[in-house]
Lab assay of single mutants.
Amino acid sequence: MQGVVKVNSALNMRSGPGSNYGVIGTLRNNDKVEIIKEVDGWYEIRFNGKVGYASKSYITIVN
C-alpha cells in the first residue's frame, strides 16, 4: 500500500510506534512512502530504503 505525507513542515520517522521512540529520519510534505502495516495509530513504513514508523494522522493512502 502506498501513502503520501501531508504536513506543513516535517514529520519524524521513528524507530518504533510512538513519540517516545528515537527519530531515524525526516519526511517532508508530499513524500511518497510504502505502508507496511498499522500499529496503534502509527504506520510502519519504508522510505528511501529505511523502515520506521510515522503517525498515520499525517499520511494519506493513495492507490
Rank of each mutant, 00 (worst) to 15 (best):
I59E: 00
I61V: 11
I45W: 00
R14T: 09
Y21L: 02
V51Y: 12
G22I: 13
R46Y: 15
L11V: 12
V5R: 01
N29W: 08
I61P: 11
S15G: 10
L11I: 11
V5C: 04
K32S: 12
E38Y: 06
S15E: 11
M1D: 11
I36G: 04
V4Y: 04
N20S: 12
G52Y: 03
Q2K: 07
E38W: 05
G18V: 00
Y53P: 00
G3H: 03
I61N: 05
N30R: 08
W42A: 01
Y53V: 00
K56R: 09
L11D: 03
I59M: 04
N20P: 03
N48C: 05
L27V: 08
N63D: 13
L11M: 11
V23M: 06
G49S: 10
P17A: 05
Y21S: 04
V4I: 15
K37T: 13
D31T: 07
L11P: 04
I24F: 02
G25I: 08
Y53C: 02
V62E: 11
Q2I: 14
E44F: 10
K50V: 15
V62S: 12
M13S: 02
V39C: 04
F47V: 12
T26Q: 09
G25A: 13
S57G: 08
V33S: 00
G22Y: 10
V33F: 05
S9F: 14
N8W: 08
Y21I: 01
I45R: 00
E44S: 06
D40C: 05
V39G: 04
I35W: 02
N20H: 15
Y21C: 04
G18T: 02
S19Q: 10
N63G: 14
E38N: 04
L27D: 00
N29L: 08
N8A: 14
K50M: 14
K50F: 12
N63S: 13
S9A: 14
I24L: 10
K32H: 14
I24S: 06
I59G: 01
I61K: 08
E44W: 08
N48V: 09
S55K: 12
V5T: 04
K32N: 14
A54T: 15
V23K: 08
S9M: 10
S55C: 06
E44H: 07
S55A: 13
G16N: 03
S57R: 11
M1A: 13
R14C: 04
K37E: 09
S15W: 06
V51D: 09
N20C: 06
S19P: 14
E44Y: 07
R46W: 15
K50S: 12
G49I: 05
I24W: 02
K37I: 08
V39K: 07
N30I: 03
V23W: 05
A54W: 00
K56V: 11
N8F: 09
D31R: 03
S57I: 12
G18S: 06
Y58T: 09
T26M: 09
Y21H: 10
G49W: 06
